[in-house]
Write a protein that binds this DNA or RNA. Structure first.
Length: 318
DNA sequence: TGCCAGGAATTGC
DNA sequence: GCAATTCATGGC
């Protein structure tokens, strides 16, 4: 096992993850705390609480089967996952470890990114400031797609409200140590709805149609993360674009956050444009040709460059 | 009050 | 095949 690689071990009392050297738990907390409206995890001080669904992963479809994770960072610079609610099986503990590794992108070696970034006028200050920040993902495909479709909304606040409403209406929750944790609704539960059902949750009729359509494809098995991961990146993008409601921005966002494609580059993203403009003090948003030139410079690391630029927006607003 | 915001589909030329 | 329009809420 090389020192630049993450690993995990089952210590019985807890599951221990040894992160790679370029890992900042503080940056994880900052990112995960970015909105008070977020419902899919809870931050309590330095702890992250997160509920995982066991039914859809094991394929048993057993109701009420969820796993609650409490994630902390120790002074030995390791991540500890504990299970405040129950004593999970070895398989479930392994699942938890894999989820966290995936969520925080711990398998990635960022050295090449930092070498590239150091020579890049736009990225250089950001890689110094946010060193150890990793692309925080959305491992579940349905959740990633729903969040992306919600994120097409005019206001980010509205997108959060849409997701919160959907989760509180159709998801399951658990309350432990005074903390409420939610599971994202199963695709099968949304697949049977009609667009009118989602209108009161602040979804437009269009977006309600998109989300139900996506839920149906996933529920019937014609769309899955594992299938997308088997395709080459371009084919995966085309497959996503074939979904109604998924345009270039959404396809690239999902590639970045769920499929973990480092080449994913949501080039038309408004936040990306704002961030570049602010970093370079441009009088107006960058032109498309200019954005393409940046993308070429960041070849292989477009997703990371984009994520670091998004991160810079939180500093802009204080 | 009226304008503008982000992204995708739909409509119009 | 493009550009223009529609969707529809909320902040300024």
């Amino acid at each position: 096992m090389s020192a630049t690689q993450a690993s995990w071990m089952d210590r019985q009392e807890y599951v221990e993850i040894i992160p790679p050297p370029d890992f900042s738990f503080r940056e994880c907390l900052i990112f995960l705390s970015r909105s008070d409206e977020e419902i899919m995890h809870t931050i309590q001080g330095e702890c992250i609480y997160k509920a995982l669904s066991l039914s859809e992963r094991s394929g048993q479809g057993e109701a009420g089967c969820m796993l609650l994770l409490k994630i902390t960072y120790t002074n030995h610079r390791t991540l500890h996952i504990t299970f405040p609610e129950q004593q999970p099986s070895d398989t479930e503990r392994a699942l938890a470890a894999q989820y966290v590794m995936e969520w925080f992108d711990l398998d990635k070696d960022l050295e090449a990114y930092y070498q590239l970034g150091a020579k890049d006028s736009l990225l250089a200050p950001l890689i110094t400031r946010y060193r150890g920040l990793r692309v925080i993902g959305i491992p579940e495909l349905f959740e990633a797609l729903v969040w992306a479709v919600a994120g097409q909304q005019i206001h980010l606040g509205l997108a959060y409200r849409m997701k919160r409403n959907l989760v509180q209406q159709y998801g399951r929750d658990i309350c432990i140590e005074g903390t409420q944790c939610w599971l994202f609704p199963e695709p099968a539960e949304i697949a049977v709805l009609e667009p009118e059902d989602l209108r009161p949750l602040k979804f437009t009729t269009r977006k309600a149609e998109y989300i139900i359509g996506i839920a149906r494809q996933i529920a019937e098995g014609s769309l899955s993360r594992s299938e997308l991961l088997q395709l080459d990146p371009q084919q995966a993008r085309d497959r996503l674009l074939a979904i109604r409601g998924v345009g270039a921005w959404t396809a690239d966002y999902v590639r970045m956050k769920c499929l973990r494609d480092p080449l994913a580059f949501p080039i038309a993203d408004a936040g990306l444009h704002q961030a570049i403009r602010a970093q370079l003090s441009l009088p107006h948003k960058p032109e498309m040709a200019e954005l393409e030139a940046w993308g070429t410079r960041w070849a292989g690391w477009q997703a990371y460059a984009t994520f670091y630029l998004w991160r810079s927006l939180y500093d802009e607003r204080g």
